[in-house]
Design a protein around this nucleic acid. Structure first.
Lengths: 282, 282
DNA sequence: CGGATCGATACCCCTGAGGTATCGCTGCGC
DNA sequence: GCGCAGCGATACCTCAGGGGTATCGATCCG
């Protein structure tokens, strides 16, 4: 199987429309149509059920979509990491660390300081990304290492070390009746009428149905909270980055959040090992 | 990057000889030479340092070799799993479980029985493989799930659940002076003169240097022990498969062995989930 | 110094991927 | 009910580029 075929197939299975799908890989509709037909013949499998009006994924097609995307990420990672390995040989041995914007800010700066103080430390580029994007960046080689947060992020498929565990706080508008309490329970937060929990986008960018407002990043979220349109439950450490017009109250029975440092399996870079060592020593 | 280029590159980086490397992917030397040159130009990276007599891997080349092999495995897995998904839709929904020959025999049969008794259980093919091969089989899609043993196998890159933990025993010739002891320590085993620990092959099939005999599987190992040419430290559960001419004595301070069930990340098969559930219930 | 070995190059052939035009089918609207 | 619009499949052409053979040029060995 060639990556071209995988790319075509992924585009088509994603769009379920040959014309639009062809624009992604930058080709025309007939080559795409032929390529998928040929791939189906070679595998002996029907990937797409097509009538002259509609295209639907078969069971096998959805497997190929999922596995194929992972494979394409692996191919991209091979090329990116090779290029970066060559760069680092010529004097620019950098690491790219990715984390969610707004999360673990203090931990991150301590980590960067601690690592920079080590002998042989290399430059670390920090990449701030949106919710759930770390996984992809780590898998396709755009990042070397990530800070993840259990239970929100999955460490599946990566190597990881736990760094710290913390409780969560409810973030409320400053003037809210509950804002004066010493602590809350999840039931209290859930029962706040008029302050629904916000909805975060799924991995495909779509939002689940529900009552809360749609949010995409921390700034949006905090603004909505300050406006009295939402309430959120966040790790304690995010207190450090809260605006003055919102208040944080510990939630005793919220699940604890574990911050981890994660990297692709079989990474054998000395710089990465040093960074992980610095992190676990914090 | 096309898989053809990756295949050529992997072959060449593995052989370090264009002529022989060309035989692997079934082509001639000139196309291979050109393909690698072109890949180098496209990536802007020197992969192989070649004189007119010798070929050596650069740092970047070894990164591409490692990452490229992983990517090729992912592509193979995509094609294999797609084919199997199609088969399972037409009535043959099987799982392939891989484990080291001779290990966890009892646990495995209990697991298979327990799973078979569940409603909706599918056929499970058991694949017995050599040391350290499970990882590869799981990664390239030839197997769906594996029984691994920490600390011998790595679970890096997979999802896993721990099943059980056990101590280890020293396996000695039946007539050996230590065979009568109730228990031993690692120091006792190490001090046994004339009975060195055997050497297992590395992932590339080569053996590390050292005094012990080279072994490749359980049968070989037990025969060597029975002959008085080696001693081994194995998990307790292997007692069940020992020959009568060897004796097992618990080693109190040997590292404990954890048996895990592992599967590729993001597997979403109902059958796999059922098998894992049955395993964790044991 | 000549032969052997190995990677690079030149040259040719031909597969096969891409593009344009068009067909055939289907659902929708008037 | 008929025509039109939208979509995937097909036909046909073009040509880039991958494969093969022969050969060159460099290097190591005897």
């Amino acid at each position: 199987m060639e990556t071209r075929e995988l790319r075509y197939c992924a585009a088509d299975a994603g769009e379920l429309h040959y014309g639009r799908a062809a624009q992604g890989p930058g080709t025309a509709q007939p080559p795409l149509s032929r390529a998928i037909r040929q791939l189906e013949r070679r595998l002996g499998v029907t990937l797409l059920e097509r009538t002259s009006r509609t295209v639907t994924l078969t069971e096998a097609g959805s497997v190929l979509l999922r596995e194929g995307r992972a494979a394409l990420d692996a191919v991209d990672a091979a090329s990116r990491r090779t290029r970066r390995a060559a760069l680092s040989a010529t004097g620019h041995p950098g690491l790219v660390l990715v984390t969610k914007a707004g999360a673990s800010a203090e931990l991150l700066s301590k980590l960067l300081d601690a690592y920079a103080a080590e002998p042989g430390a290399v430059a670390v580029d920090v990449l701030l990304c949106g919710i759930g994007e770390q996984e992809r960046l780590l898998r396709d080689g755009r990042a070397d290492v990530a800070l993840l947060h259990r239970p929100f992020d999955s460490t599946v498929g990566f190597d990881a070390e736990e760094l710290c565990t913390e409780g969560q706080v409810a973030v409320l508008p400053a003037g809210h009746p509950l804002a004066g309490r010493a602590h809350l329970r999840m039931a209290d937060v859930a029962a706040v009428s008029g302050l629904p929990l916000p909805r975060w986008p799924c991995r495909d960018g779509a939002y689940p149905d529900g009552p809360g407002p749609e949010v995409r990043d921390h700034a949006q979220l905090l603004q909505l909270i300050a406006l009295g349109r939402a309430v959120a439950v966040l790790p304690e450490s995010s207190r450090a980055v809260l605006r003055p017009d919102v208040t944080a109250v510990p939630v005793l029975d919220a699940p604890t959040v574990t911050t981890l440092i994660a990297w692709p399996p079989h990474s054998r870079s000395r710089a990465l090992a040093g960074l992980v060592r610095a992190a676990t020593r914090l």
